[in-house]
């Protein structure tokens, strides 16, 4: 067997990678470890590294702090907003990609809605949703303060521009001749979209959907201001353990771990596609 020789450059590279990884991963490691430590060992100084793991903090988080409800809220808001974003966004970005709707200006305008800090619109949103919650239509769509419909709308508003931009590049990658050919074969434009374009754009749409789920799952600002109890999401829920009696490090770490785990799992599973999504369709489909 050929033994690969390491050059000084290789060693330097590996060292830097190790250093970066330690800096990046240590907080996550520490969070997980803390969530499994018995309470009396958490704040020990010097820290203990060996202990008998316990699930007590997880039990506390779910039983005392209603964490199951927060997960349910987060999932509902994320899934519904993602469905709306993907359906509306794919149609919109197809229109931009193929028919040059708005001559590029409209699409840029849509993107500009992402350019302001979200905090700038939170107060207006607060007033809008409070008012909407008092109307019959608002009630029907679960709008209002501390209601999930409000989160769905917020997440849709903030994910849609991004989704349109991302999917636009995927649609542009599909050769227009395929669509021409299908039209000659007898498909209407709508049928071409559903039968030819969508199947080819499916990977791109999936990537977009994953991003929307991630963003919604991680969202904090809107949820913290527009929800209180009933519609509270998981990211806001983590803050529950910062109490008047002090910070409950164990349950807080347990909650944070629950919050982060799905994201890490997603990222590991779908690494390849996510990287492709980030390169914005630079790779041809």
């Amino acid at each position: 067997m050929k033994v690969k020789k390491f050059t000084a450059m290789d060693i330097l590279r590996q060292t830097i990678i190790m250093a970066v990884l330690i800096v990046m991963l240590f907080p996550i490691y520490w969070m997980i470890v803390t969530s499994l430590k018995p309470t009396n060992l958490i704040l020990m100084n010097p820290p203990v590294f060996t202990f008998k793991p316990t699930l007590e903090h997880y039990i506390y988080a779910f039983e005392q702090a209603n964490f199951a409800l927060y997960i349910r809220n987060t999932l509902l808001a994320a899934i519904f907003s993602t469905i709306i974003v993907v359906v509306a966004g794919s149609l919109a970005s197809y229109g931009f990609a193929r028919y040059n709707v708005g001559g590029g200006n409209l699409m840029f305008f849509i993107l500009t809605t992402r350019m302001m800090p979200a905090i700038a619109v939170v107060l207006p949103f607060f007033v809008i949703f409070r008012t909407a919650g008092n109307s019959a239509i608002g009630q029907f769509f679960h709008l209002g303060m501390d209601r999930i419909g409000t989160l769905v709308v917020c997440y849709t508003i903030f994910n849609l521009p991004f989704a349109i931009w991302l999917m636009h590049s995927f649609f542009q990658d599909i050769p227009v001749e395929l669509e021409d050919s299908a039209r000659l074969d007898g498909y209407s434009r709508i049928k071409v979209f559903f039968k030819v374009v969508l199947p080819l754009a499916a990977p791109g749409i999936a990537v977009t959907a994953i991003f929307c789920l991630l963003f919604s799952w991680n969202e904090y600002l809107f949820a913290s201001i527009l929800t209180r109890d009933m519609a509270k999401t998981i990211t806001v829920g983590v803050g529950d353990f910062w109490t008047q009696r002090g910070i409950l490090w164990g349950p807080l770490s347990a909650a944070a771990t629950v919050c982060v785990m799905p994201m890490i799992a997603f990222a590991l599973l779908l690494q390849k596609w996510i990287v492709r999504g980030l390169t914005f369709g630079a790779v041809r489909g």
């Binding site: 299908a182 007898g186 030819v196 080819l200």
Partner: peptide, 27 residues
């Protein structure tokens, strides 16, 4: 009318056979 394209315009997800059958089924 039938058209042959510079970029072939074959449906990448279908086999050659299915590509040929596609226009007939569409009709």
């Amino acid at each position: 009318v039938a058209m042959a394209f510079e970029t072939y315009a074959l449906y990448p997800t279908l086999t050659v056979y299915e590509n040929l059958a596609f226009p007939l089924r569409a009709a």
